[in-house]
Write a protein that binds this DNA or RNA. Sequence first.
DNA 1: GCCAGCATGTAAAAAGTTACATGATTCC
DNA 2: GGAATCATGTAACTTTTTACATGCTGGC
Lengths: 177, 177
Amino acid sequence: MLNLDTICLGVLYSGSKTGYEIHKIINNDFKHFQTASYGALYPALGKLEAKALITSKNKNVQAQQQSLPKKKYTITDDGRINFQTVIKGTKAQERLSSDFLAAFYFSDHLDPEDISTLIDQQLSTLQGNYKDLISVPLSTMPDGQRFGIRYTIAVNRAATAFLKGEGRAIQTSLTRK
Amino acid sequence: MLNLDTICLGVLYSGSKTGYEIHKIINNDFKHFQTASYGALYPALGKLEAKALITSKNKNVQAQQQSLPKKKYTITDDGRINFQTVIKGTKAQERLSSDFLAAFYFSDHLDPEDISTLIDQQLSTLQGNYKDLISVPLSTMPDGQRFGIRYTIAVNRAATAFLKGEGRAIQTSLTRK
DNA sequence: GCCAGCATGTAAAAAGTTACATGATTCC
DNA sequence: GGAATCATGTAACTTTTTACATGCTGGC
């Protein structure tokens, strides 16, 4: 997997940001394939700064010293080079990371009602994701980002369609037993 | 995420197995949504045994003492209860864990040829996965497992179709620039 | 006799989560 | 003045990967 360091470099590529802003971007815009907690983010930013791939500027070094500085992080030329190199070396991999599939795999050890619940939950999860995805303002974003959203929508639709057909059929056959 | 402990319990639910066999099952049958290294697996089994959710029996306590025992792990009644409880409490979640989407998200900072490579790679990854999926002997497996495979195939097909259409279109528009 | 596959494990390091701890700013 | 949001960070813990280390067994 593309690690958090590289994700941060990618986010900073288009302009300087605070850690808080980076966190927001990852957990909103990227939530369909990636999230990050502060406990992972700040150490990652620290590491990147130590490697001089980013620099930080304290935004308020005014008279009064505050306990915590408000830093704005900026990608360096080395950081841009590193990002390019890592992306070029990244294999396009993908996996459905799915509790639903895992649980369903063991469905022959589960009660029919649990299986039915699982399918209902998954459908509602997919529908929730779908709502998120279609509410994104596609027209105002770069091509790559728009493409990613539409790709994810296509996958979501296929999963939903399959579940509505086959999943419902399984539920029906279970309740008949 | 459903953790490795629970996956192990699920695998052992249908019969006793060695760590090696569990590893093989996870990394072959489950590879579309889960993998596990030995370095994660054996400690997990040790933990489960300490909690008495599984027991182990040394298969060769013959005369000669070997450096490493060959253990067969068996799920206990407590283990079955624990498995049921955890599954019932599991939310059906799912996410596309994707280096492809991550890299593509930053495509406005990449060279056209890199983007093109990314799409080609992703298509070949999807096609590789597809081959794996259709080579599974569907007719001999439990309903739940067959359902999971077909669900994954449906998603894979949608992704491939989208990429073949939209992805190719992007490649063409890039090379025209 | 050798090689592929069976078999088990540990150690170091990486990566991340959760919970905690603190304080500033902005808008109502 | 209070609430929401902005903002940064640490500490303990959990999980996992990678690399190492060892040895048996069955088939050719």
